[in-house]
Write a protein that binds this DNA or RNA. Sequence first.
DNA 1: GTCTATAGCGGGATAGAC
DNA 2: GTCTATCCCGCTATAGAC
Lengths: 204, 204
Amino acid sequence: MKQDTEKIIIEAACKVFYEKGYNGTTMRDIAQTAGVNLALLHYYFRTKDKIFEIVFSDAFTSLFKKISQALTSDADIFEKIKLIITGYVQTAQKHPQLPGFVMHEMAVNSQLMLPIIMKYKEQNHVVNLFDNFYVEIEEAGKKGIIKKINPESLCTDILSLSFFPFMAKNYLTELIYKDKKTFNLMVKQRIEHITNSIISNIIV
Amino acid sequence: MKQDTEKIIIEAACKVFYEKGYNGTTMRDIAQTAGVNLALLHYYFRTKDKIFEIVFSDAFTSLFKKISQALTSDADIFEKIKLIITGYVQTAQKHPQLPGFVMHEMAVNSQLMLPIIMKYKEQNHVVNLFDNFYVEIEEAGKKGIIKKINPESLCTDILSLSFFPFMAKNYLTELIYKDKKTFNLMVKQRIEHITNSIISNIIV
DNA sequence: GTCTATAGCGGGATAGAC
DNA sequence: GTCTATCCCGCTATAGAC
């Protein structure tokens, strides 16, 4: 049962870590959620930190996979932007707690996160990926295909509009939305909404 | 020294809670940061939860104060939006960890937060405030002063663009920005940037 | 591989001296 | 009001039986 148990534990760990964060999660939580004994977690993964490393690394990767596909595709600049937005929002729709999990751990436990990210960046040539996209944006600006904009600001805006609603769900449903139904409607229309507002801000 | 000590403790608690979140913070942390004895925290505030309640309540209020002023002013719709954006971003510039703190605690420790927020909402007539603003947006849409837009989506976008960059500072500086200098430059230009992109999306 | 039992430590909270 | 000392619980981690 080795493979199965390992997988069950990681899936349980995902669930609990996403929900409560690193500091709010106990090994007992994970064991109970997985339906296995506490000692087993240590048998398979030795420490809480090792489990967390796997969970965080997977989370980080899944936030990155789609954007990476989008950036390396040979679509034009508008299509690329659409792909990025779609990738981000779909990932968040599928795993609503994922963006908040990643952002919070990077803010609060950065000493634990940075080595993981460094490793990831080296293996996946992250820098080049973005550099090429930035050059593309700048050249499209010079050629008059789009407005002259700051590519980093563009990425910041896309990420903000894509992730924040999921990270702030409880805040928004308390203060901005009349009820959860209205919130969920917004989430469904989010890809189209963001795409329109980003595109309309860069067309000449 | 009663007044002073109380204040010193709360200020230290703010600093530590903002940095590490509720679950990552210990009473010993707060005591050390405040430069006072551990027992004193319990003498003044009895429990960790009571201290947290004060800190969270203040944080929540400071996110709300400026928007409240903006919404009750007699400025026109464009000016109001500018005021809201300015209020949010300035608050975040002054206390960069505040948005992340509030959003994360609401996501993770909602059972502790909701009673605090309920209390706040009742005392400050929060619902009416937003209702009036929503009506204003809708009427401006009907009159052709602005596009017909969903007021809740507008608020979501403003909040997203205003808060997310601060919540995701480490993520952005690792993946999107070449260095911290570029990130800080973006932060400085944020109010103008957001205002322009929000306004250009609602003008007819 | 999976369990029980427990070591060892760090956390919130309190008693009681000053 | 402020301190030291301490209780007691829950946490991570491990030893050892099966």
